[in-house]
């Protein structure tokens, strides 16, 4: 049977892929919500798969049992019509039951999702074309800080993420932790993340948002609560003054050029708000919204020619000579 073989290939392919799935997969669940959704997905897959196989079976038998036994159109007999009617009626009734059951299971899972209390960490997340800005909230204004393209969260505690729209619609999605939620201008949405174990979970914008929609990723790093607190305290501090002379020159170049119009580095006069806060840029795993790992080389490449690395990005090319570029990248790489 062709269909059966195809199913086998499909499943085999799926398992093969599933084995090497990374940190961005609904099947590789590490969060409370994602786990509940994965279980529900399992239930739906089994039920729907069974229904599909039954239909295939019925189709196969129907076309094979009396193939080419005559060409003259037949007027159906009353008995067979009645018998078929009963079978079809039963099938429809079973369909109604199945659908009702699945609707109920779906509804129960939905209720479970909304039941998580909000306490602890609150992050306000803004989506921009094409990067993410996270503002960690606190009662005390001096304990509020901004970072970009990376969220750190404590394991085991619910984290409230307030999604605020600025330019176009984006969608916040970390499949290994939870389902997605749109970020819509003029509307307030929120989602609760709860990581079950430490790890790095990748997320990506899931609503088409323009030219570089494909390169609008971010990381959620779940850490033990004590590590998380240490990170948070470090993030609150202003940038250290550069230790070596090359980095110091890099800071001077940064402040002299147009960089500061868009970027902020706390502890320096740079206070731009249009681009990511760079106070601790080197402490983040990636730059350019998940595009490149944070190394001095990638920082240099990104500053040297953002439009080749990420065509259409809002980061303009700021002309720098080779020495300036080296100095700036040294400075940025020092912003731990």
């Amino acid at each position: 049977m062709r269909a059966g073989r195809r199913l086998a290939i499909g499943v085999g392919l799926g398992l093969g892929l599933g084995g090497c799935s990374g940190s961005q997969s609904a099947l590789d669940a590490h969060g409370a919500q994602a786990s509940a959704l994965r279980d529900l997905m399992g239930l739906f897959t089994v039920v729907c798969g069974t229904v599909w196989l039954l239909v295939l079976l019925a189709l196969a038998v129907a076309v094979w049992r009396r193939r080419a036994s005559g060409r003259e159109p037949a007027e159906p007999g009353a008995t067979s019509e009645r018998r078929l009617g009963i079978v079809v009626g039963v099938a429809v009734a079973l369909t109604v039951l199945t659908i009702t059951g699945l609707t109920f299971a779906s509804y129960r899972t939905t209720r479970g999702l909304t039941g998580i209390a909000d306490e602890g960490v609150t992050i306000r997340l803004r989506g921009y074309q094409w990067w993410w800005e996270a503002t960690y909230q606190d009662q005390a204004p001096e304990r509020v800080f901004r970072t970009a393209n990376e969220l750190r969260i404590p394991v085991g505690r619910p984290v409230r993420v307030e999604l605020a729209g600025v330019d176009v619609i984006h969608s916040f999605w970390v499949p290994s932790l939870a389902g997605k939620q749109d970020i819509i201008p003029g509307r307030q949405n929120e989602i609760t993340l709860k990581a079950e174990r430490p790890g790095i979970y990748r997320g990506q914008c899931a609503e088409f948002c323009g030219l570089q929609h494909a390169h609008m990723a971010f990381l959620v790093i779940a850490e033990l609560p004590e590590n998380y607190e240490a990170w948070r305290s470090a993030q609150l501090r202003a940038a250290e003054p550069p230790a070596d002379p090359e980095a110091a020159r890099g800071r001077d170049v940064f402040l002299a050029k147009s960089c500061k119009a868009c970027h902020a580095i706390r502890g320096t006069p740079a206070g731009g708000v249009l681009g990511p806060d760079l106070t601790h840029v080197a402490s983040r795993e990636t730059i350019a919204a998940g595009l490149l790992p944070t190394t001095r080389g990638s920082l240099a490449a990104w500053v040297a020619d953002p439009q080749t690395v990420k065509p259409g990005s809002k980061m303009p090319l700021v002309p720098l000579d080779a020495d300036e570029l080296r100095a700036v990248s040294a400075y940025l790489a020092s912003l731990k």
């Binding site: 609904a26 599909w52 295939l56």
Partner: peptide, 26 residues
């Protein structure tokens, strides 16, 4: 029949709010 029934069944999946939160726009 073979293809559409499968598409209809994945349609049942995307009709479920919680499952759609994962598979929507993928």
């Amino acid at each position: 029949i073979v293809t559409f029934v499968l598409g209809g069944l994945t349609g049942v999946m995307v009709a479920s709010v919680p499952l759609d939160l994962q598979v929507h726009d993928t």
